[in-house]
Amino acid sequence: MKRIFKPGLLIPVAIIVVLAIWPLLSGNSASSREAMFTLIMSMALASSLNIILGYTGYVSFGHIVFFGIGGYAGFWAITELGWHILPAALLGGFMAALIAWLLGLAVLRLRGAYFALATIGILEAMKALVINLDFLGGPVGLEMHFSEYKRYGGPMESLWMVYWSMVFLAILVTVVSYYIKTSKFGLGLMAIREDEDAAEVMGVITPRAKTWAYVLSAVFPGIIGVLFFFKNGNIEPGDAFRLHFSIEWIVMIMLGGAGTVLGPVLGGGIYQWLRKTLLTSPIFKDYQLVVAGVMLLVIVLFVPTGIIGWLRARSAKLRRVFE
């Protein structure tokens, strides 16, 4: 008998749902909605990256490239082709997945630091390419006319629509992450992470598994990019391909626990909450990147498995609660 109640899935989804309805309960709903949007988006992005980084063991440093590619594709479809946000978001996800697949054929042969470096190279190359593409607005990027929001009932309604779409996506990513982790496919990915050559000897078709993991980890950032830049009203290369955001996602994953379902959700939440606190504190506001760097160092040195990884290593009982 399969149990319907799976704590490994229920806990992270419950966290997202509780945070998501917070703006409705609190007095100042617009500002808490913005705060929660950032938080929940981070959870979704970190969970996506976790598929290739945490489950498969390939550190995709420049992973934000898929956020940028998706963002540009969707934004372009909305402003130039007059598409509705829904198909535009799907286009963003599709483009990110397609490019991940093509790039994967080349870079997934690399291991360890070489792969990580290649993903940074890809990010910088993509940024340089977009800057030189006139139809994407070159270095200035693309603008969306304010009247675009009318289609969805006005600016206020659009913001809420994007908000709930983000919540939906975050839950979807978590569900996908959980089903990967607990599937045969996921077992193969984790075997690759632990020892790729041994995995191959045991019959894991490693090139195929890695490609799928890379594509799956790219598709959601692609969709999220479309939502983010639609809400933003404009897109430019500097925002779409900012390496340090990617690095922040890695910090979130490491903080919560790489290779776990709950880890990136928890890590994304804690990291953004800390960041917001630091941003509003006059002492720390100039040092937030320093703090992120130090945090990463401390985690890697002292709790390399992150909060959830640390808990899971304690006992088999905890492993059954926290996936």
Binding site: L187, G188, M190, A191, A199, M202, G203, V204, I205
Partner: peptide
Amino acid sequence: ENAMVGACYG
């Protein structure tokens, strides 16, 4: 899980 990898992919 180690042994399961062998079974799953063998």
